[in-house]
């Protein structure tokens, strides 16, 4: 059973190594996709024991996840793929619980939920935005979840092959949910702990990012080619 963590990273030199080491305690390989960082992200990830794929142009988080997934399936023959963040928000120790439903053959994809688990210091504004996101997803994708945009997921080989991310930027999380519905994949939610440190909040998506996601999704409905 080969378990691969796919870690998209953009200018995360200070935190990526720790995230890689943390993930590697629970997976066989950590694949860091460096989305054209201008800092030492690649080097630090490599030193921490990751396999590093470098985008020579910045293509976004969705594109990075897909690059890592392609590599994991083709070159590493992954059985389970875990989407993990480079910024240390996620806990490697949650991976065991996250992949359990796939190992037990109860699910094809397991979605981490910040609302089932403990979100350490999640600001109220963020909470509200995520609740709205939940409602939006229920309307658009018809899937009821407690948390729609948590990046922590585990995918079986089958679902990783079915779910091909074409939204290069942030709307990929919604796209994944769309595809779960399209392919009728079995999904469950699993509580995960996400840390909201001031540093992460400063660099990560602002809550306004939600509007960008909505814009991206609507655009994709009109511009699909």
């Amino acid at each position: 059973m080969t378990i691969v963590a796919v870690i998209p990273a953009y200018n995360e030199q200070s935190r990526v190594a720790e995230a890689v080491r943390d993930a590697l305690l629970y997976v066989n390989y950590a694949v860091v996709v460096d989305d054209c960082s201008s800092d030492q992200t690649s080097k630090n990830a490599l030193d921490a024991g990751a396999i590093v794929l470098r985008h020579m142009l910045n293509r976004g988080q969705g594109a990075s996840l897909q690059t890592g997934t392609d590599y994991a399936l083709e070159n590493l023959k992954a059985d389970i793929i875990v989407h993990f963040d480079a910024d240390g928000q996620m806990q490697g120790s949650d991976i065991q619980e996250l992949i359990k439903p796939i190992l037990d053959n109860r699910a094809d994809i397991v979605l981490g939920s910040r609302f089932l688990g403990d979100s350490i210091k999640m600001p109220l504004s963020r909470k509200l935005v995520l609740k709205l996101g939940m409602l939006f997803t229920l309307c658009i994708s018809g899937i009821k979840l407690t948390d729609t945009h948590c990046g922590f997921r585990a995918l079986s080989k089958k679902s990783a092959k079915d779910i091909v991310i074409t939204r290069d930027r942030m709307a990929h999380a919604s796209e994944i949910l769309d595809l779960i519905k399209v392919y009728g994949l079995r999904f469950v939610e699993c509580p995960v702990t996400i840390k909201y440190s001031p540093e992460v909040l400063a660099k990560g998506q602002s809550s306004w990012g939600a509007l960008v996601i909505v814009k991206d999704m609507l655009k994709s409905k009109f511009l699909d080619v």
């Binding site: 690649s42 024991g49 590093v52 470098r54 594109a63 690059t67 590599y71 290069d168």
Partner: peptide, 25 residues
């Protein structure tokens, strides 16, 4: 949009072909 997707494909392919591994692998 189509051109953007094609660029992503190229960037992805190059990244995969030039994968760097640390010594352990």
């Amino acid at each position: 949009e189509k051109v953007q997707k094609e660029i992503t494909q190229v960037v992805r392919q190059v990244a995969i072909n030039k994968a760097e591994k640390s010594k352990g692998h």
